[in-house]
């Protein structure tokens, strides 16, 4: 997964995703699974990589491509919190806030990020559309508190002081 997951998010959402290379990529997965349904999570990732989020049109398209119903696809997509079912800012920031990180000051890191991105509150997108910030549950890097994910880039041991430096890398 590249670090430029959200680069193409302004593609017209009503254009199909599974054409050309993306279609080839999906079809290359088919032999790895005995059912088409099993390609659902990978297919949703492909949509999100291409568009930055998963629109209702894209859900319908995934359903068609894999022989499922849109309702089924939506039920699965809403189960997994990493799929964006609404548009998000150019860069998506996930800050761990579960107990181990909380013990190490994740609240302060979150505060700094909200302030410096201009997002103001958790879950919001900054007015310049540059960042969306959410608090997530355990990122599995508790020894490197506080870990944050910006798009697909992992940053460990983030402190309030280090926030500005990290953000600067995401114009």
């Amino acid at each position: 997964m590249s670090g430029t997951a959200h680069a193409a998010r302004h593609d017209a959402p009503d254009q199909p995703v599974f054409v050309g290379q993306v279609k080839d990529k999906l079809e290359a997965l088919f032999p790895s699974y005995p059912t088409r349904m099993a390609c659902l999570l990978p297919a949703l990732w492909m949509v999100q990589e291409a568009r930055g989020w998963i629109s209702p049109d894209a859900i319908a398209e995934v359903a068609t491509v894999l022989g499922l119903t849109p309702a089924y696809v939506r039920g699965v997509a809403t189960f997994y919190t990493m799929y964006h079912l609404h548009p998000v800012g150019r860069h998506f920031i996930q800050v761990c806030g579960t107990s181990p990180c909380h013990l190490c000051g994740s609240d302060e890191v979150m505060k700094a990020i909200l302030q410096q991105t201009g997002c103001g509150e958790v879950g919001a997108t900054s007015p310049d559309d540059r960042f969306t910030v959410i608090e997530v549950e355990c990122l599995g890097a508790c020894g490197f508190a506080t870990p944050i994910l910006v798009d697909d880039d992992f940053h460990d041991s983030v402190t309030p002081e280090r926030v500005a430096g990290v953000l600067a890398r995401y114009p």
Binding site: T69, P70, A71, G75, V76, F79
Partner: peptide, 22 residues
């Protein structure tokens, strides 16, 4: 054999979902 209903979301936010076009 027409799965047009789903369980959406999870935890206590869950509800029964449907696609408005189906």
């Amino acid at each position: 054999d027409e799965p047009v209903l789903n369980v959406s979301e999870r935890g206590d936010r869950a509800f029964i979902g449907i696609d408005p076009d189906h």
